[in-house]
Design a protein around this nucleic acid. Structure first.
Length: 268
DNA sequence: CTCAGTGTTCAGTG
DNA sequence: TCACTGAACACTGA
């Protein structure tokens, strides 16, 4: 479920595998233009022989900082993930749906897998200064604005509150489940409009957004480590008698174009 | 067999 | 310009 915490986990994995090492070989089967924006040859040329100095992230965008340009940019889409492996124990076997594989010094392997191919692999000279990264809003883990700054940002926005939370030019990295979790914990009905929120509701959104993202990242994005009280554990599937941990009924509907779960008894 | 889906983007409408 | 909707993308799994 690649939202900010899952991508941050991917960044950690990538750093652990790659940092300070040179890329020796690259496997990149370009069978779809959409998945790999640059040609496979360009990806190979950019990566083979380059040393990975760091792996950075902003929102759901991840990039590899190399000792030369361009750099590698990765987006996980709906089903993307990064896996580390050791060539000595795994041999040449590739995981299913592998779209990019880097073999590095020290027999390290980093694989990008993406069954549904909504992910994106690209090259960029300076990712932070060019789209898509440059168009993103604040990252709630790296640069959560103050409550005052947050209020000013909201004052310039209109429309559905869930749509705002999903807008990557507002808060980068928030996806469907985080948006629902924030609204549940802030006790706000997802059908509300931003301009209707009372100051204390804005403060609740601010606090919960920061808290949920931090907690999920500290849990290394492992759902069983998320607090039991989270809506997260109950929202999957549209079970007609789904209940929260304390027995309140969940409902599902499409809001802002996405499946949305909420608890009418709690969210007003 | 049908259909929803953790994300993004684009075209079209009001 | 902005807000919003629906479709498209590609594939899995319920």
């Amino acid at each position: 479920m690649p939202e900010l915490p899952e991508v941050e986990r991917g960044r950690e994995v990538a750093e652990a595998v790659c940092r300070g090492r040179r890329i020796e070989t690259v496997y990149c089967p370009v069978d779809r233009i959409a998945l790999v924006r640059a040609s496979a040859a360009a990806v190979r040329r950019a990566l083979v022989g380059a040393r990975v100095d760091a792996v950075a992230r902003h929102g759901k965008q991840l990039w590899f900082e190399l000792d030369r340009r361009p750099w590698l940019l990765v987006h996980f889409g709906m089903t993307g993930a990064l896996h580390g492996a050791d060539a000595r124990s795994r041999g040449a076997a590739r995981p299913p749906f592998c779209r990019l594989e880097l073999r590095l010094e020290g027999d390290r392997i980093l694989s990008f897998v993406d069954p549904r191919r909504f992910g994106r692999i690209g090259l960029a000279e300076d990712p932070r200064r060019e789209p898509p990264v440059s168009t993103l809003g604040f990252d709630p883990l790296l640069e959560m604005p103050s409550l005052r700054g947050f209020r000013l940002m909201l004052a310039r926005r209109r429309g559905n509150v869930k749509a705002l939370l999903l807008d990557q030019t507002f808060a980068a990295g928030v996806g469907n489940w985080i948006a629902d979790e924030v609204l549940y914990q802030a006790r706000i009905d997802p059908r509300r409009r931003v301009e209707s929120l009372a100051p204390r509701e804005v403060a609740a959104v601010h606090r919960r957004l920061a808290g949920i993202v931090r907690t999920a990242v500290e849990a290394r994005s492992v759902p069983s480590r998320f607090p039991r009280s989270w809506l997260f554990h109950r929202r999957w599937g549209k079970d007609a008698d789904a209940r929260t941990h304390d027995g309140r009924r969940l409902v599902h509907a499409t809001i802002a174009g996405r499946t949305t779960a909420w608890v009418p008894e709690v969210q007003r």
